[in-house]
Amino acid sequence: MAAEDHRQLWQVHTWLLDFQLAGAQGLQGSLTEQQLQQCWAAWQQQMQPTLEQQHTEFQRSVFAAVRQLPITWQQQPQLEQLSVGRDGVTPDGALLLDIAGRTAAGVLVAVEADGPTHFREPDGGLMGTTQYRNRALAVRGYRLVSVPWWEWAKLRGDAQRQQYLMQQFEQAGVV
């Protein structure tokens, strides 16, 4: 099998686990442990360049605004975090989050700076990959705060951006 085949199998495996399909075993039993390990390694290899990429100005500005919010954190928000597993603690590497943290109350928070590639043309609906990401985050216990690029671009100054984010955090049930 090619590396792409392994990556796709790993995605199917995590999808089956996330949504409790196939007896909540994923591809275990259909693939050997060695094959699953090869799939995981191919996925990790694909994720590595993304982890090393420079953050966009959009991501950095959302991150700066999140850090200024009047929220007490158990784990400070960080840029480019791997998602935690269904146990809520151990990183599973299935998703790469723009910004992630844990509030003092123990709430897992994922803040996604959603650029144009997350939305369909011409209706502006969410792409399928973004819909999957949102569902997979919910399964892992995250409260998602999605920041669409066009809404962020309309905001002027730190005060407007922080007010907008607080509203989004409230709507997500974070605060």
Rank of each mutant, 00 (worst) to 15 (best):
M1Y: 08
A3F: 14
E4R: 11
H6E: 11
W10K: 01
T14I: 11
W15P: 00
L16G: 01
D18F: 12
F19P: 03
F19Q: 11
A22P: 01
A22I: 04
A22M: 10
G23D: 12
A24M: 04
A24W: 08
Q25S: 14
G26S: 12
G26H: 13
Q28T: 14
L31T: 07
L31Q: 14
L31I: 12
E33N: 06
Q34H: 07
Q37H: 09
Q38L: 15
A41S: 13
Q44V: 06
Q45G: 06
P49H: 08
P49F: 05
P49T: 05
L51Q: 11
E52G: 04
Q53A: 13
Q54T: 15
Q54I: 08
H55V: 12
E57D: 14
F58W: 09
Q59K: 03
R60D: 03
R60T: 07
S61A: 11
V62Q: 00
V62D: 00
F63Y: 11
F63I: 01
Q68F: 02
Q68L: 13
L69G: 09
P70K: 08
I71L: 11
T72R: 06
W73R: 03
Q75N: 07
Q75Y: 09
Q76M: 06
Q76H: 13
Q81Y: 10
V84A: 11
D87E: 10
P91D: 10
G93E: 14
L97G: 00
I99Y: 02
G101R: 06
R102F: 08
T103S: 12
A104S: 11
A105M: 08
V109I: 09
A110T: 03
A110M: 05
V111S: 01
V111H: 01
E112G: 00
G115Y: 02
G115F: 02
T117W: 06
T117V: 06
H118P: 08
H118E: 09
F119P: 02
P122M: 12
L126R: 13
M127T: 07
M127H: 12
M127P: 02
G128Q: 12
G128T: 13
G128L: 15
Y132N: 03
R133A: 10
R133D: 02
R133V: 02
N134W: 10
A136N: 09
L137C: 13
L137S: 01
V139S: 05
R140S: 02
G141T: 09
S146A: 12
W150R: 12
E151H: 13
R156H: 06
R156E: 08
R156P: 01
R156F: 04
G157D: 12
R161D: 01
Q162D: 02
Q162K: 14
Q163F: 05
Q163Y: 12
Q163G: 10
Q163C: 04
M166G: 00
Q167A: 09
F169G: 00
E170P: 00
Q171T: 13
G173V: 06
G173L: 06
V174G: 00
V174R: 00
